[in-house]
Nucleic acid binder design. Structure first.
Lengths: 236, 236
DNA sequence: CGCGTCCGCCGTACTTTGTACCGTTCACTG
DNA sequence: CAGTGAACGGTACAAAGTACGGCGGACGCG
């Protein structure tokens, strides 16, 4: 390809609707990566080439911002953890603070299902993540009256529980299902469990409907409340 | 390569010390895959070529047993879940049954850290896995006096919690560290958290030692006991 | 205005991976 | 001994990560 054509090609590329019109920054790259991974439902499908295409830049351009694909993956976890939002209203006490934090973790991982996968694989100790998640959560709990050491324990439990829950819950494809689809899927799953040979799987067959509801939010809440109740009792 | 050479090459391969002397079976393939993944500490490092080499067979031979790499990964989760061991001694009551199951999940995932990753990514509904894990666990809980619906909830909580805990806990590299190494690593981690700027991370700095202990077994126990206590209260 | 210098960008090419396709070997049968 | 089927694996190709080096435009200096 000769130079004239190349320049023209690039110019056209930048003009493309939805194309890149703003400066390329690490944050924008990470955000695009999250968008792709969350939409695709599989981290393997987030390729460097695909990410570059999404940003309308050449593949190798990204290596000017990150040393490797792995560093991009780490960046995604940092980004999501670092910007996790806790609601502004203060909590009325330890129980509500624990609830606030638990649901904040859940909400963050539901918004970025890929991050739950990431966190199940890698440990991030970046300052961004520590500030947005750990320090902020501890602050919240301590301010509501939870003693520091116990707050740390609660932090560990809550994030751990949310990671496991999202991982166990999220069906493929990750994307949000429409209401009709999810009802249909529920029906199919009940059918599956209830249709197993009942001599071999008596309990699974009998409690098929309860099993199907395991990934529902009310299950998350049940586990969370149980933990909160016990923790409160310890505080007295 | 001409035929004579090829035959000789194959014969030599089968004679190789440590080479394959027993029949190739799906189970043996899966076990080798688990061995590699658990040792390497990263599912990406479990390649079809590497697995075939470990078994002293050609790469494509494995495709006679599994349709794809993904099917091998599913097989690993099934295998581990299906053979999860619950101790033989009966439980004295609901609390002990819950403890038994919780630690069984933890033990299984500690033995096969790669499986925790797998479970955080895929759902397995194979009969092997259902029999070894779900049906067996429900049986155990119901026999100890936990009502069926609650037993299902507990199953969900316990596996979910174990997945999250192992994922959050396991440091890289996954392999068991020697005692000296783990003490040294603990020291380094405390140093890291305690050394952060204390104006920006006051709580992290102050509770550095508690944070470092988050991945310890006593943390798992604490969360488990809290959950058990609340569940028991619900039973009365 | 002219010219060097530097920085952002990316085309090319090499390696590693999953896997489709098809030939080869070997044990067993008649 | 020829025939047959199953088990095995060599070759080849597409897709992915990434090392390397070149290109072009912006900016500063004379």
């Amino acid at each position: 390809m000769i130079n004239g054509e190349l320049a023209e090609h690039v110019a056209e590329q930048r003009k493309r609707p939805g194309g890149r019109t703003v400066a390329l920054t690490p944050d924008r790259i990470i955000e695009a990566a999250l968008r792709i991974a969350d939409a695709e439902g599989d981290l393997d499908r987030l390729t460097v080439r695909r990410l570059a295409a999404e940003l309308n830049v050449g593949t190798m351009t990204l290596y000017g911002y990150f040393r490797s694909r792995d560093e991009i993956l780490d960046g995604m976890a940092d980004h999501a953890l670092g910007r996790m939002k806790l609601p502004a209203e203060p909590d009325s006490g330890p129980a509500e603070a624990l609830r606030t934090v638990g649901y904040a973790f859940l909400a963050m991982m539901r918004e970025h299902p890929s991050v739950a996968r990431l966190l199940a694989t890698r440990v991030t100790d970046s300052r961004t993540a520590l500030r947005g998640a750990m320090e902020a959560v501890l602050r919240r709990l301590v301010d509501a009256g939870v003693p520091g050491k116990i707050a740390v324990r609660c932090y560990g439990f809550l994030i751990t529980y949310a990671i496991g829950f999202i991982g166990y819950q999220t069906p493929r494809p990750w994307g949000a299902l429409s209401n009709a689809e999810s009802i249909e899927q529920r029906r199919r799953r009940i059918h599956f469990y209830a249709g197993l040979p009942s001599d071999e799987f008596p309990l699974v067959v009998r409690y098929a409907d309860a099993i199907v509801d395991l990934p529902s939010d009310s299950q998350f809440t049940a586990g969370l409340e149980a933990y909160i109740a016990s923790t409160l009792r310890e505080l007295d």
